[in-house]
Design a protein around this nucleic acid. Structure first.
Lengths: 257, 257
DNA sequence: CGTGAGGTTGAAACCACTCAAGAAGGGTGG
DNA sequence: CCACCCTTCTTGAGTGGTTTCAACCTCACG
């Protein structure tokens, strides 16, 4: 962003309210009444966009804000005790980053932009105050935090029980769904993260991820050119991801393993 | 516990308030003022104790309450899409169960007592109302939910990056710390879960867990007799778990795997 | 047009799994 | 009170999915 028109962009950002935001149905405003928007908007900040690799925050930073990704994407990376790192999640527009910091007022992981990314910053203390006055906002905040737990549980089940192939398929399947939810094409998109990032996230070696992509492409499930991905057979991908059949769960009960 | 005095015990339970509870510093009351206890206590319910194997709730049950373990222990088990299951956590006294259900008003997993277990049941809708009036309760609720995310992140890092041996060591290390926190001995305790449960939780085969226990015992790190465990060398266990040295993190930075 | 980060692919090694048999408690009924 | 059974756990042998190591490729960029 050229420094010359930064204040112009800032003004535009500030002017663009939650009420007008295309992500409002995914984000905190979901469910709150129109009359209540100003109370929420009063606390939302819009920092300058991040370039690829820029940190949103680092592990151990004091916790001030939670962040909503507005455009672009972010990865959250936790340092492990032995000096290694584990990627906890990739966050696309409408998703919230920093919730793990509520627990002890310090960020638990680094959050890094994977590409040009803009976010909303919401001072958490103020959000708590506002949400105490707006039950529907409080409810939505709790939903969003809980959703993070559910996401982690899915990730956990993948790492604990699934093969490398299933993990990658599930990763792509989930990502496609989330992108669709955020208003993007679920069948054709660009992966903003490297193979190494994907491997780290899925508990796999870089080389394994690469091999699996090649396999999926050979099998005609996807087409992949570098980071550009097209899902050719969504059903086959769902199948590989462990989603046997159409409806969620219900189906395969009774055949152990 | 003889059935004859069950009603007496029930009365005792009802009478025993949060203000008197030995777990109050771990639980929701942490940080709230004495004058505020009655508002919290008014919504807390104390169901009859559970026997080993009894469900606290099942996946897909409508979400009404969150539960605090008062004594005993609980496992939470999520069904996976392919008909398998993944144990998400073991919950000991002072820990809260059911937070993943906030996201969509249905429980996401089964919660099963691992032994004779008593819990407090807290209607979540009412808790939200009370916490909107008591900022310190609201804060603590958020802390507790966020702590669940942090726990899951630790679990994720274990499944993603650590070897079988490290995972088991970390599991025992964490469990010891949590037990200490809850007022039990951190070096000598009974595992309320089976080897199979531990394996499921850690993404390992039952046989692997059993072998690793034998190894740890041979190496003199622990003594184990069936489910009775004594940690002989806590430092060695911490080392194996990936906690190199004393202080959290900081140490091994600069040697990139 | 050279350079380097990011990605692909092969070969060999290894960790953890599966299969399987046997041991050790803990409970139950005779 | 003992014998039996069933669940839980231990331990061995062989297999296999993933990793590691390493060479090569290929874009993007200066």
């Amino acid at each position: 962003m050229p420094p010359t028109d930064s204040h112009v962009l800032d003004l535009q950002s500030l002017r663009r309210s939650c009420a007008d935001c295309s992500l409002r149905l995914l984000c905190l405003p979901a469910g709150i009444g129109y009359g209540e928007f100003p109370q929420l908007e009063a606390v939302v900040r819009k920092p300058a966009p991040l370039k690829r690799g820029d940190p949103l925050f680092h592990a151990n930073d004091p916790f001030e804000h939670i962040y909503v990704v507005r455009s672009g994407s972010v990865k959250t990376v936790a340092p492990t005790y032995d000096g290694d790192t584990q990627i906890m999640g990739f966050h696309i527009p409408g998703e919230i980053v920093g919730l793990d910091a509520i627990s002890n007022d310090r960020h638990q992981c680094d959050a890094l932009a994977l590409e040009r990314t803009s976010v909303c910053a919401i001072p958490f203390a103020q959000l708590e105050q506002v949400s105490a006055r707006l039950p529907s906002l409080q409810r939505q905040l709790h939903r969003i935090i809980s959703r993070e737990i559910v996401h982690d549980h899915g990730h956990l089940a993948a790492l604990g029980r699934q093969t490398a192939r299933e993990r990658l398929a599930l990763f792509l399947f989930n990502l496609a769904h989330r992108l669709e939810n955020a208003g993007y094409s679920p069948t054709e998109f660009r992966l903003s993260m490297s193979r190494e990032d994907i491997g780290n996230y899925l508990g796999l070696a870089l080389a394994t991820v690469s091999r699996l992509f090649s396999q999926l492409a050979e099998d005609g499930v996807v087409e992949i050119d570098r980071r550009q991905l097209r899902i050719v057979q969504p059903d086959a991908l769902a199948q590989l991801a462990g989603h046997h059949g159409g409806t969620t769960c219900e189906r395969k009960r009774g055949d152990a393993v």
